[in-house]
């Protein structure tokens, strides 16, 4: 064997041995216990400090408020949504007092009108809705039933109301097409309002024979896309029928 190879291989083997010795001593002892990671790191993650106590912890002392809230529209809204994280409070109730938001600006975070919010979710326009008064002067946050049941539909169906107001259907009241029982205002999902069921309903105004005012667009109910229901093409809150004609 040539001299060069002897020395080169000697060096290489020495380096490899050194590498494995160093590796052995530097490897974290818990590495690879459950997978390609340090099992000890799970301990670090698990021991992170808790800030939100969770609602069950609140009920231990504030059962009365919890019972009230669970019967109200705010059932399901956890205490710490409004009262900030309270784990510290559960550990030392006198030292750490959870705050309670009293400012008018707080409630619109959820209840301010935003067209992206799902329809049916109660929303108000903070500018026009009893300006100047803190929300809690009329609504108990633990039972926020409005002092006066809303008579119109807009408070909850603002997005629809705002769409309808710029459409040809603006002058029509919601009750023209939907019959809502009083119960709907109190238990919206239990008593759903009615919806029109057939073409004839729209035909009352839009058929050629209808006795409605002459500027209302008419169609021949027999030939006009028979087999379809009107609202399969026209969104009733913004029918867009006239728009098409102009084009």
């Amino acid at each position: 064997m040539p001299q060069q190879i002897k020395y080169l291989f000697g060096l290489a083997i020495a380096l490899i041995i050194i590498f494995f010795i160093v590796r052995h001593y530097l490897m974290s002892p818990s590495f690879g216990l459950f997978g390609h990671y340090r099992a000890a790191s799970l301990k670090t993650v698990v021991s992170q400090e808790i800030k939100y106590a969770g609602e069950i912890a609140c009920t231990e002392c504030h059962d009365d408020i919890f019972t009230l809230k669970e019967k109200s529209y705010h059932r399901g809204v956890a205490c710490e949504v409004c009262h900030s994280p309270a784990y510290a409070h559960t550990q030392d109730p006198s030292e750490h007092k959870p705050p309670a938001p009293r400012k008018r600006a707080y409630c619109p975070l959820c209840h301010g009108y935003n067209p992206t919010r799902p329809t049916g979710f109660p929303q108000i326009d903070p500018v026009t809705h009893n300006p100047g008064n803190p929300c809690i002067s009329c609504h108990n946050p633990h039972d926020p039933t409005p002092p006066v049941t809303p008579q119109g539909c807009e408070p909850c169906h603002t997005q629809i109301a705002r769409t309808k107001i710029v459409s040809p259907h603006a002058p029509l009241p919601c009750t023209q097409c939907h019959i809502a029982k009083e119960e709907h205002k109190l238990n919206p999902r239990v008593a759903l309002p009615s919806k029109p069921r057939n073409r004839e309903f729209c035909g009352q105004c839009h058929s050629q024979e209808a006795e409605s005012s002459p500027e209302i667009p008419r169609v021949d109910m027999k030939s006009h896309y028979s087999g379809f229901l009107c609202w399969e093409c026209h969104y009733p809150h913004h029918p867009e029928a006239r728009l098409k004609k102009e084009e």
Partner: peptide
């Protein structure tokens, strides 16, 4: 995000789930 791992191993909900007012 850890799914609030330190909470879920103690039977609590992740913080975001805990405070979501609409579920």
């Amino acid at each position: 995000c850890t799914f609030c791992y330190h909470r879920i191993v103690k039977g609590l909900q992740p913080a975001c789930v805990e405070v979501c007012p609409t579920g």
